[in-house]
Design a protein around this nucleic acid. Sequence first.
DNA 1: GAGTGGTCTAGACCACCTA
DNA 2: AGGTGGTCTAGACCACTCC
Lengths: 255, 255
Amino acid sequence: MTTPDRRPASERIADELRQAISAGQLAPGAKLPSERELAEQYGTARNTVRQAVRLLSESGLVVAEHGRGVFVRAASNLIRLGNDRYSPKHRETGLSPFLIECAKQGKAGRFEVLFVERVVPPEYVARRLNLPTDSESVLQRENVFWADSDPVQGVTTWIPWTIAEGTDLLNDVIGHPYGIHGVFEDQGHTMARLDDEISARMPTPDERERMQLPPGVPVIDVLHTSLDQDGVPYELTRFVLRADLSGLRYNVPVE
Amino acid sequence: MTTPDRRPASERIADELRQAISAGQLAPGAKLPSERELAEQYGTARNTVRQAVRLLSESGLVVAEHGRGVFVRAASNLIRLGNDRYSPKHRETGLSPFLIECAKQGKAGRFEVLFVERVVPPEYVARRLNLPTDSESVLQRENVFWADSDPVQGVTTWIPWTIAEGTDLLNDVIGHPYGIHGVFEDQGHTMARLDDEISARMPTPDERERMQLPPGVPVIDVLHTSLDQDGVPYELTRFVLRADLSGLRYNVPVE
DNA sequence: GAGTGGTCTAGACCACCTA
DNA sequence: AGGTGGTCTAGACCACTCC
């Protein structure tokens, strides 16, 4: 006689499915039996099976698609962004670092401009850029980046109004051949250092919707500050990345 | 007449609670009404309230404690590790970078050694260290780091056996005043560059247990490679960090 | 229209915490 | 003992997909 499994039924079911997946009986892309079928197989209520599926989905093993079924998630290469995304050596290609990385992975990258406006900065922006929070002291630009048909990044950039005023940065489309950072250089700010603060968290409901995030996928939240040749911060960008499709990489000297 | 809210009741409830939290009516540490009370207030079944609480918990706003209640999570400063964790300037303190960071945040840091053994390296380790996978070519060391009473990091280090053999690295306690990296320097490897590959994901059930992770908290997974003065990789460390208590920071030159 | 996942109900019992 | 969250049941209807 075997020892009875005293754990909750939902965990037991999740475990059996997990094993079937790692054993290859359920290959990436394969469809699981429907929740109603599983409930009957295991002799439980459908809600219990749903709880099991949620456990798997939270650890990123499966994705539920409404009206279609639950599928084993295919492992995919991460698009890695890192310190070299601003390197001058990528200049000559005329492509933004995101598009270069997409090309490497054989994906089609594109982006949309959502919002360009002069605003009052949030506190965490003002603090890092040494600006006041009591006036419209920054220009805010918002973009979304896509790889193939997946939205993978939300990007918000804040630029001190004293720098942005009267430049191409106010337009949706940046005319400068080197993009936004080309404009900064024309204004006398060359990026000498970057300061990236990185966190990970679950997405807000808003982000979940905008990035079409499957449940159980976290986001990587990067607060990037650009520092010029004099150590002055002149631009701050917040990247929110889908953690299942992207990552970061820093290959840097030890100082 | 106002437009009826057509979203699911669970989302509506989650939203109202979210607003109460951000408005400060429910301060950090405060206890929410019990699920049964909320169900009655909103005129729904308890399961619906539970779904709402799950949504909040997944975005890290609240924590449910079995038998006690659901509490607004206190915002806590992140312990940020980054490129300067290996900087020689921290040498003189005689503290490891993790302990320094803990001290800054006013927390008590400590660590445990779980495992020190010669092993066959996993493929991703062998590839980055240019080692074979068909022999016990590396020394593997595992640690857990604590801040106050919370386990915040699992750390696994792999060192080529040719470097580790006969050194202090085989012992649980490293005698060298500069720690593990002091030993590497004695062996002729000074860290000139680091290469950190960063991802985020939900924890495995195993990690969830070992780090006592509340549900809905992701982990940050860092694969760190140390490169010496000749560009040779001589050590690889994998950090798994609780994303709710820790983050990363890279302040680096643009090359 | 048939089948799928998403949401919801109105109960029940268990495991844990506090008093 | 009484209250809390955790799990579970056996239904129901809705929203979406595919044929």
